[in-house]
């Protein structure tokens, strides 16, 4: 809970600085956003990983996260030619949906990091780590409320995540390379990415309709095997 509070505080501060920087007379007007935004995202990811380190995790869960992350990362490769359509978001989300938000976040972040070792690291890596992690986190959140696979809710969330992913990724593009940082250039950057985001969102929905149920069943089977209750034996 403490970490969640710190996390929210970080987000509020960064939004506050953003708002201040838009006002002409504040001292934050000339701040180097390209640098600061990378820093904020880096800290946000770091906090998730620190809380993961603090928790006692058994080897089974670690091996499972690594497997799902590399599966999600691999699924980017055959689709690298068609930009923005890939099952990675779906795999991260279904992992989060079944195993909870934190596992989902770590899976997404590791998937982005590892697949970029093969596809090329870049300043986009922390952003992708954050975005995919966040998709996993959101899916984990809705996964809490259903005992069965709610394919409608999942597909809707997958659709939304497609857009959220693109919108968050646009921020680094806008902050780093566009000047002045006004509403107009902001909207322009977002309009430019709109077709790609739509493709991503539609792809997510298709993947979750085609693979959703069977992935859910396989993963829940392994989830049950993950924790053996010794008293019931």
């Amino acid at each position: 809970m403490k970490r969640l509070t710190a996390y929210i505080a970080l987000m509020v501060t960064s939004v506050l600085i953003l708002v201040l920087s838009l006002m002409p007379d504040s001292p934050f007007n000339e701040i180097n956003w390209a640098l600061l935004s990378v820093l904020i995202v880096g800290i946000a990811i770091l906090m998730f990983f620190i809380s993961f380190e603090k928790r006692s995790v058994d080897p089974k869960e670690m091996a499972l996260i690594a497997t799902m992350a590399s599966l999600a990362g691999i699924s980017r490769i055959p689709f690298a030619a068609i930009m923005s359509v890939q099952p990675t978001t779906f795999i991260v989300m279904i992992t989060g949906y079944v195993f909870g938000g934190q596992t989902g976040f770590i899976t997404g972040a590791v998937a982005a990091l590892v697949s970029n070792f093969f596809l090329g690291q870049g300043p986009w890596t922390p952003w992708q780590m954050f975005c995919w992690g966040f998709c996993g986190l959101l899916a984990g959140f809705i996964g809490k409320f259903s005992n069965n696979f709610n394919h409608k809710a999942f597909a809707v969330l997958a659709f939304v995540c497609g857009y959220l992913f693109g919108w968050a990724m646009n921020i680094w593009h806008w902050v780093g390379f566009v000047y002045p940082l006004t509403i107009k250039t902001f909207i322009a950057t977002y309009l430019a990415s709109f077709p790609f985001d739509t493709l991503h969102a539609v792809g997510n929905v298709v993947f979750s309709i085609v693979f959703g149920k069977s992935f859910y069943l396989i993963l829940t089977r392994f989830k049950r095997r993950l924790h053996v209750n010794k008293e019931r034996l």
Partner: peptide, 17 residues
């Protein structure tokens, strides 16, 4: 040194690739 669980997960996924 700072987080061997995370590093283990990352190296394991690199190897699984």
């Amino acid at each position: 040194r700072f987080g061997n669980k995370t590093v283990f997960i990352v190296t394991l996924s690199i190897r699984l690739f």
